[in-house]
C-alpha cells in the first residue's frame, strides 16, 4: 500500500485529483447528524426548516467539508494533510449532485519536507460553488 501511495514525484502544478461526485439525499443528512452528533433540526426536520423560512432541510456545512476531505485523502493518502481550510459559500440541497475539484497549486519544500498546496472546492452540476478552500499535504519522496 505504501508503494502505491502518492509521492512528490507523481505530482505537478496544475494536476487535478480524481473527481468525487455524490448526489445528496436527506438520508445523508441524517447519517451525518448521527455520526457527528450535530442534531440541529434545520438539517433533518422539514417542518422546522420550512417554518424557519428555508425551502427545505439543507446539508451540514461540515458534511460538505467532509466530502471534500474524503476526496483529498483519496488523492494524497490518509494522515498526509497538514492544513485544510474552507469557506462555506452556499447551502447544499437534497437532490443536488455535488462534485469535488482539487487542483495542485504549488510544490515546495518546508523544513526539508515535500509540501503540496492545493485549491479545492465543491460545486453542483450547474457549477454553483458550495464550498471553496485550500489544503496542504506533505508527501513522501522516492529518492
Amino acid at each position: 500500500m505504501l508503494e502505491k501511495a502518492l509521492h512528490i514525484e507523481d505530482v505537478n502544478e496544475g494536476d487535478e485529483a480524481p473527481v468525487k461526485s455524490h448526489r445528496l439525499t436527506r438520508t445523508d443528512f441524517v447519517r451525518y447528524a448521527g455520526a457527528s452528533g450535530d442534531y440541529n433540526p434545520i438539517h433533518h426536520d422539514e417542518t422546522f426548516a420550512t417554518a424557519a423560512g428555508q425551502p427545505s432541510v439543507f446539508g451540514h456545512g461540515m458534511f460538505s467539508m467532509g466530502l471534500l476531505g474524503t476526496a483529498l485523502t483519496d488523492y494524497v493518502g490518509p494522515g498526509r494533510l497538514t492544513r485544510f481550510r474552507v469557506r462555506f459559500a452556499r447551502p447544499t440541497w437534497p437532490g443536488e449532485e455535488l462534485r469535488t475539484k482539487i487542483v495542485v497549486k504549488a510544490k515546495r519544500v518546508e523544513h526539508r519536507k515535500h509540501m503540496v498546496d492545493m485549491d479545492c472546492s465543491l460545486v453542483n452540476s450547474e457549477g454553483e460553488v458550495k464550498v471553496v478552500g485550500e489544503a496542504t499535504a506533505h508527501l513522501p519522496g522516492r529518492a
Partner: peptide, 29 residues
Amino acid sequence: VAVCDSDPVYRDLEAAREAGFDAIPVPPT
C-alpha cells in the same frame, strides 16, 4: 461512512498498519 469514505484504513487495523500507522487514523474533519 457518513462522509462517504470507504477507505479500510478507518476500519481495519491491518489496513492502517499497511498504510504506515500504528493505529486507526481519523478522517480529516
